[in-house]
Design a protein around this nucleic acid. Structure first.
Ligand code: MN
Ligand code: MN
Ligand code: ZN
Ligand code: ZN
Lengths: 132, 132
DNA sequence: CACTTATTTAGAATCATTATAAAGTATTCC
DNA sequence: GGAATACTTTATAATGATTCTAAATAAGTG
């Protein structure tokens, strides 16, 4: 069982709820962007069972900490997550309020010339805002 | 009167509160990053007068709409604003939870190769997360 | 199976932000 | 200047995403 091992390997007990959430998040051809609210709806529609909102929050945060999800830096009243954990960037369509992946190869190499003493770069993320 | 004209020119009446907020935001050598909460404290300390929180929110949003402030895309429970409205980027020190400006010249030119039909690029912002 | 530890859950609490609507102020026009 | 009008401020309430709490349940261990 793919997800059972995945969870065990990161010290998370493979509970029914976590496995159901894994299925919704990772059993797809395409990766996707979501808010907790989006996800809660998707879960309700896809599995015929209830998972409490607190568990969804807990699980998403646990997955993010383990690196199974990424948080997308964007200004919104809701937090956006991404099942695409590759090093990549985003378009944000301001009118449609929609995120679109920009693969690393779609953006030339980014050269950060400034250095901060004693700190190292953990990630470099580009947000490209789009208008009509 | 610098700020009176500035406000009038953008169709905002130069009220006492707006002028006081202008002073706190723009009467400084250096630009700075702030949350509404930061700013409310700063206002209380610098002017000997009370401005309601609702007015601070209204004013900051009006200024942002007019282009006198920028919102910084970052995941935080509070919204960050910037009095530096030049085209620039940010370091975000994860440990100290602090934003640091990265001037455009500190980052090589960014080449967005992908195009989205019917949309044009409004802004390109880079967020560089720093760890120890 | 007992025992320990982690997880789930409903509901309450928190807190940034936005909405409301009444009182106050700036602007316009005579 | 002095209405009349439109905009602004304000206290306070409402909203809504997220986090907290503490009791019930489930998983891991031997
Ligand atoms: Mn957020
Ligand atoms: Mn926000
Ligand atoms: Zn993405
Ligand atoms: Zn800045």
């Amino acid at each position: 069982m793919k997800y059972i091992d995945k969870l065990r390997n990161s010290g998370l007990r493979p509970t029914k709820q976590r496995l159901q959430i894994c299925k919704v998040l990772f059993d797809t051809k395409k990766t996707f962007h979501f808010t907790i609210n989006d996800l809660a709806k998707k879960i309700k529609k896809q599995i015929n069972d209830n998972i409490s909102l607190a568990t969804i929050y807990n699980t998403i945060h646990a997955f993010e900490k383990k690196g199974y999800l990424k948080q997308i830096p964007i200004n919104s009243n809701e937090t956006y997550f991404d099942t695409n954990i590759s090093d990549h960037h985003h378009f944000y369509d301001l009118k449609e309020e929609r995120l679109i992946d920009l693969e690393n190869s779609d953006v030339g190499p980014i050269n950060i010339k400034k250095k901060i003493n004693g700190k190292k770069i953990k990630s470099v993320e580009v947000l490209v805002k789009l208008e009509d």
